[in-house]
Design a protein around this nucleic acid. Structure first.
Lengths: 117, 117
DNA sequence: TTTGTAATTAACCATATGGTTAAATTAAAC
DNA sequence: GTTTAATTTAACCATATGGTTAATTACAAA
């Protein structure tokens, strides 16, 4: 039921840094160059390059070539894997809560039967 | 529109390790002790204690006391924060795709008008 | 072919992660 | 009060992260 895919390690880890989430948020609005992505971030370009490698490793972005620019594109699939894992997780605890709810109702019903005796 | 909450750093980072995801999956089925959680994992108890601290820091679990046991409980809220971030993200790129779709339809309509001239 | 711009690589550094074993703590049970 | 079980802390180690500056590469434009 629950997803143990190894890709999730790289995906969740990549999402764990605010600069990388900011980059993904920017890329959600469309392709962007390295400098575009760096502009709102308070760090050097080499630092940005490193973050991009982390995002690439997780396949959260892909890259292309256009003259001296290396534009980045968002890839949705890994984000789907991540939210699927959370959804599977939610199903597990929701079914547990349902069983608990059921059990409490049974208890309540039995206590009323007991009172009538 | 997009969520920049600092808690997300700790949450996503915590989800980035398979042992921690396994622990959360186990806790989805109900409270468990440290040894319960350690049992299927190929690592020492101190290592498990450390992973539990990471999960606690992210508020993904809470803990209680029962004699010499320290049972752990899943906390759903942080998982909701995480999936909300992904959902917000999805909204951003879906609206972009909608605009692109719209644009392509307009282009197509205009090309037909052009052909008629 | 020189110059300018975009981006990456190299080298370095500090701190965090993820693991270990051995010792200490906590609390029940004998 | 001694023993036993569950868990944590301490000390240590290797590797990964996240940043820097300086040098290098890639490419267009003059």
């Amino acid at each position: 039921m629950v997803n143990y895919k190894a890709e999730l390690n790289a995906i969740f880890m990549a999402l764990g840094h605010p600069a990388r989430r900011a980059m993904l948020a920017r890329l959600g609005k469309g392709e962007a160059t390295v400098s575009d992505l760096a502009q709102p971030l308070d760090m050097s370009l080499p630092a940005v390059t490193k973050h991009l490698k982390v995002l690439e490793r997780a396949k959260l972005i892909s890259r292309s070539k256009n003259a001296q620019w290396r534009p980045c594109q968002l890839q949705e699939a890994p984000l789907n894997l991540a939210s699927d894992w959370i959804e599977d997780q939610r199903k597990v605890w929701e079914s547990r809560l349902d069983r608990l709810d059921n059990y409490l109702h049974t208890l309540h019903a039995n206590s009323k039967k007991g009172a009538k005796k």
